[in-house]
């Protein structure tokens, strides 16, 4: 394995008086899929937003592909790093066709050959070309999330930041989107950082993961440790038990 794709060193984020990310450090190797798990308010999405450059107030050091990242990122960064958001209903412009949505990032980065690239991105995510001039409201939730992935994919990034990419979807649609993400990673040698509250999804998608609570990293473990149900800390254990459903005492 080459040098890590992402190095986060003692990341701290505060909003006013609340300290939401405390001294979080981790490394992600190139081509690896890394999961961040935690409950709401644990700071997991904030970590991802800092990596994506969406949150410009933070302390610590973030190195991505060997380059220390400033608070405000350059264009090349935004081409190499793309994010897919949780809610496909909120993350697509309702008055723009899919063609507009996919053409915009290409125009921003001055990439030619838009015609072919858009067609390819749509076929990569398994959407028929007839969808190209449709509006988001004409698509189902799963199809919209595919569009959001295509939108990220069209720039041919190397690092994908996934913020709960399937939690707004039905289980059957979730399976389709997860399969798509797996296949894309294999084909394109992408690096993933996946944030989710669902341990089973992270266990399925990632090789390593971090459990967060109250803005801190509680435990870092391999997917094998997770599926063997042998996390070391009590909190990670509790999360694991809770994810298995309801248990009646006695």
């Amino acid at each position: 394995m080459s040098a890590p794709a992402v190095i986060v060193d003692r990341l701290n984020v505060s909003f006013g008086s609340s300290h939401v990310v405390r001294d979080v450090s981790f490394e992600v190797a190139e081509g690896e899929s890394y999961g961040i798990v935690g409950e709401s308010g644990s700071g997991k999405s904030t970590v991802l937003r800092v990596l994506a450059g969406l949150n410009q107030e933070w302390g610590g050091a973030v190195t991505i592909f060997g380059k220390a990242q400033p608070k405000v990122r350059d264009k090349a960064f935004h081409r190499a790093v793309q994010m897919v958001f949780q809610d496909p209903y909120g993350s697509l412009h309702p008055k723009k066709t899919l063609d507009d949505a996919l053409a915009e990032p290409l125009a921003i980065h001055g990439i030619g050959d838009a015609e072919r690239r858009i067609a390819r991105a749509l076929s990569d995510v398994g959407l028929p070309s007839a969808f190209r001039y449709r509006y988001p409201h004409q698509l189902s939730g799963g199809q919209r999330q595919r569009v959001a992935i295509a939108r990220a994919l069209v720039l041919e990034p190397t690092l994908f930041l996934l913020d709960e990419p399937t939690s707004a979807l039905d289980v059957s649609i979730q399976a389709e989107v997860l399969n798509l993400l797996q296949a894309l990673r294999q084909e394109r040698k992408l690096t993933y950082i996946l944030v989710s509250h669902d341990l089973a999804v992270v266990g399925h998608m990632c090789e390593r993961l971090m459990v967060m609570q109250h803005g801190q990293c509680v435990e870092e473990m391999s997917a094998a440790t997770l599926s063997a149900r042998k996390p070391e800390t009590a909190y990670a254990q509790a999360l694991l038990v809770a994810s298995e459903g309801f248990r009646r005492q006695g």
Binding site: V171, S172, L178, N179, Q182, A200, S227, A228
Partner: peptide, 14 residues
């Protein structure tokens, strides 16, 4: 189509 811990599935069935 549910991913399960401890039962790795290469590809989820749809």
């Amino acid at each position: 189509c549910l991913p399960e811990l401890g039962k790795p599935k290469g590809k989820l069935s749809t």
